[in-house]
């Protein structure tokens, strides 16, 4: 068992899922209330990482993060950080590639709230932000848990983007899924099996939990 890789994976998944909660909430809120014509395009954009090969996403991100690129150069200049092949770069890439796993459940939950519930709150004198905090967020908390768990698990199992952006630096960017790949290449069958079982167990438990949570969430409005 590569404990260092386990640590990196766990840290990356925790940070990514925590970053994604507020980001996902804001995007979902905006998508629900916006009457902007291009909102469907924005919604499609947030779902794109679901269908895009991770290597494609990884390639574009790597290009953008390169210090030769204006954006990567700008970030390197202002923060002194090289995003490519670093944990921070990995975090940014993970947030983007796991975005749909946070946005989709939150958006579905927001859309599930009847419009007149929010409107009733406005008629009670609550501002749109107060309505969001006091009415909408409490109503979708099971989906927030779902979004958090799904994005955590997806990051834990991410392989393609991590390999493209992070490379394979022990203690910095080598995650469990990459360690498994390495072990298989090195014919360390037992090690690979052991680590795979760990990921399998975590995924199974969490997905089961998410499904049982969704059942309960659906009962709320009926």
């Amino acid at each position: 068992m590569d404990w260092l890789a386990f640590q990196v994976s766990f840290k990356l998944a925790t940070f990514t899922s925590l970053c994604l909660l507020p980001i996902g909430l804001l995007i979902a809120r905006w998508l629900k209330h916006s009457r902007f014509r291009g909102r469907h395009f924005v919604e499609a954009l947030t779902a794109l990482p679901l269908v895009l090969p991770p290597t494609v996403l990884g390639y574009f991100l790597l290009t953008l993060m390169d210090t030769q690129h204006p954006l990567g150069g700008f970030i390197a200049q202002t923060t002194g950080q090289h995003l490519a092949f670093s944990f921070n770069g990995l975090l940014v890439a993970s947030v983007i590639s796991s975005l749909p796993f946070a946005v989709q459940p939150l958006l579905r939950a927001m859309e599930h709230i009847p419009n007149n519930i929010s409107e009733a709150a406005w008629c009670c004198g609550l501002s749109p932000w107060q309505t969001f905090i006091r009415i909408e967020v409490p109503l979708i908390w099971p989906s927030m848990l779902t979004a958090w768990i799904l994005s955590f698990c997806h990051t834990l199992g991410e392989f393609g983007v991590v390999l493209m952006i992070g490379g394979n630096i022990a203690g910095e960017t080598r995650t469990l899924s990459i360690a498994i790949y390495d072990s298989v290449l090195a014919f360390e069958r037992d090690k690979a099996l052991y680590m795979s079982l760990v990921l399998l167990t975590i995924s199974l438990i969490t997905v089961t939990f998410v499904y049982s949570l969704n059942r309960r969430n659906h009962r709320m409005f009926h």
Binding site: N116, A120, W122, M220
Partner: peptide, 18 residues
């Protein structure tokens, strides 16, 4: 709506379920 001081009873009441 917040500035208007209107009391509204919606058709399906729209109570806050939580």
């Amino acid at each position: 709506p917040q500035q208007r001081r209107v009391g509204m009873v919606f058709q399906d009441y729209a109570l806050f379920p939580h």
